[in-house]
Simulated scan of single mutants.
Amino acid sequence: MSTGASTTADRIVDAAARLLDEGGQAAVTLRAVATATDLSHNAPYKHFGGRDDLLGAVATRDLIQLAEQWRAVRGGSAVGRDRILDAVDVIVEFARDHPARYRLLFGAPDPVTQGEGLDAAAETALQAFVDIVVDGQREGSLPASPSDNLGIMLFATVHGLIGADAGGRLRSRTGWADIRAGMDFVIGLLRDRESS
């Protein structure tokens, strides 16, 4: 998820994201980022107050990009249940392709409590997901319930299935081919419950 960075700050965030992908949070130091970008050891401090601020910038950028991907799913050709499952695929693919960045965003939030725009980016990303939930409700693929609550519940379920899959417990216990199949099962249960 590179942005084609053009400023020094962008280059620093790109380098931090790469280091995070390669070695987890322990690999992200301002010194390592400076080395990776061929900058002086003090250069990152001109743009970021410290490591947590830099990790917050990585998280902010990733949230903005996730929101953009969900908007693209919403504007795509899929409808109903398929659109919801395509939205699920976005976070599943992010977790698979960038496990350390996924953990940064959704596992241990302390390092990302700092960073300009982080709260706004998180709210925007959640709203982009909830907008797809609202569409699913209008189309009859999801039950009529408070959309924010339903969106958060579905999002939490995705995270639980991601964790179960990463631990090797999902497929051996359920026979589901993948997380998408698990979420399809959950969506079906929700619809069945409302219909009964």
Rank of each mutant, 00 (worst) to 15 (best):
E139Q: 11
I162Y: 07
H159S: 15
S147A: 05
G163S: 11
V130I: 12
V130N: 05
L150G: 07
S141W: 02
V133T: 13
G163P: 02
L142R: 01
I152K: 13
A164D: 00
D165S: 15
I132A: 09
D148R: 15
H159M: 15
V134T: 15
L142W: 02
V130S: 05
G151F: 10
A164F: 06
G160C: 09
F155V: 13
L150A: 09
F155G: 12
A144C: 09
V133W: 04
Q137L: 02
V133A: 10
E139V: 08
N149D: 06
S145W: 10
S145P: 12
P146N: 07
V130L: 07
G136T: 04
P146I: 11
S145H: 10
V158C: 05
I162H: 06
F155I: 14
Q137D: 03
L142T: 09
I162K: 11
N149Y: 08
D148Q: 13
L150D: 11
L154H: 11
R138T: 04
A164N: 06
A166R: 08
R138P: 07
L154E: 14
I162S: 09
G163C: 11
A166W: 02
L161A: 01
S141R: 03
I162M: 09
P146S: 08
P146M: 06
L142G: 05
Q137P: 02
D148L: 14
G151W: 09
A156F: 07
V158D: 05
G140Q: 03
A144M: 08
D135L: 07
E139R: 04
R138N: 10
H159Y: 12
T157W: 02
I162N: 07
A166I: 01
E139A: 10
Q137W: 01
S147D: 05
D165Q: 14
I162V: 08
D148S: 13
L150Q: 06
T157N: 07
G151D: 13
N149V: 15
Q137N: 02
V134W: 13
S141Y: 03
N149A: 11
D135S: 09
I152T: 15
A166D: 01
G140M: 06
L142Y: 00
D131K: 01
V134S: 14
V158L: 06
Q137A: 01
G160S: 10
G163V: 10
S145M: 11
V133K: 04
A164G: 09
V133I: 14
G140V: 03
